[in-house]
């Protein structure tokens, strides 16, 4: 299933969200941006937790106002700051899920709980951060959801738990008709799993790119003042003044390698792209 946001706008005081995103079937789409950029607002709009002023949200070609209970069952959701009451145990939650989702796979879920050593009778409020995160993700993928909406699912987790969770998502995507929107601050997670990335700042999408292209074609040019003045700037997205001259973000690293002899180019990580896109001019 695919999900599409067409020019969704939402005004909160001076903050305005204006956002178009497409999460195609069979792809994992990353959603990055600094705190307060509009990631959670966008996710809340998708889930119907907030109203929006204009625009449309589609699940396949069905408008959000027309979504039925069955359509909503196709979502699996992990939110950064909320979940089932901490007074419930996993055993309680299974009772609720069984009665809430007709396709909740209890056997598979219990198997996961065993695999990830989650205590079934302990209250969730007594779980560690990692255990809670695993539980939320396991719940989201155990009812045949076709679209996962994951808001910071790996925040605060150690590298081992994060890897386990990313493996779960890779397994989940093996059935081709599924899609994932994942917001995260941890760029290494996104690099390792996402097919494409949206970057949001001040409520506006400032970059959308395939992850492969981001890694292979994006780079940072380290330019002296003189080089900066003479260089062809048609493929420079952002620049930042540095002690030696300028750091410039380009989406055509090859172009500069071939056309500017002696130029210093560094391959960049997603973090570099984020930093330059947000801090650069």
């Amino acid at each position: 299933m695919s999900l599409r946001l067409d020019n969704v706008t939402k005004q909160y005081g001076t903050f305005q969200l204006q956002c178009s995103i497409e999460i195609p079937e069979g792809r994992i789409t990353g959603f990055v941006g600094p705190n307060g950029a509009g990631k959670s607002t966008t996710i809340k709009a998708i889930l119907g937790l907030i109203s929006y002023d204009s625009g449309e949200i589609f699940l396949d070609e069905k408008r959000q106002e027309e979504w039925s209970k069955q359509d909503r069952e196709k979502f699996g959701v992990v939110l950064a700051d909320s979940g089932f009451s901490g007074y419930f145990s996993i055993r309680d939650i299974v009772q609720i899920m069984k009665n809430m989702y007709p396709h909740f796979h209890e056997d598979i879920f219990w198997g996961y709980c065993q695999q990830y050593r989650l205590p079934t009778d302990k209250m969730i409020k007594e779980f560690s951060t990692g255990m809670k995160a695993k539980l939320h993700l396991l719940l989201a993928i155990s009812h045949d959801a076709e679209v996962l909406i994951l808001d910071e699912p790996t925040a605060g987790l150690d590298v081992i738990v994060r890897e386990e969770m990313l493996d779960l998502l890779r397994d989940y995507m093996e059935e081709g008709n599924r899609s994932i929107l994942i917001s995260s601050h941890i760029s290494s997670d996104l690099e390792g799993i996402c097919d494409d990335l949206y970057m949001i700042q001040d409520g506006t999408i400032i970059l959308h790119e395939d992850t492969d292209r981001l890694i292979s074609s994006y780079g940072v040019l380290k330019l002296t003042e003189q080089q900066f003045n003479t260089i062809d700037k048609s493929h420079i997205l952002k620049r930042k003044k540095d002690s030696f001259g300028y750091s410039c973000l380009t989406d055509e690293m090859q172009f500069y390698m071939e056309n500017v002899p002696g130029i210093v180019i560094e391959k960049c990580s997603i973090d570099d792209v984020i930093t330059l896109m947000i801090r650069g001019e």
């Binding site: 937790l49 069955q70 069952e73 979502f75 959701v77 700051d81 009451s85 007074y87 809430m100």
Partner: peptide, 21 residues
Amino acid sequence: SYDDYENGFSFLFSLPVSREG
């Protein structure tokens, strides 16, 4: 109150639960 506790409503309404329901 239980539902509302610790932003519980956000999660609850992200499940197939309508406000009318």
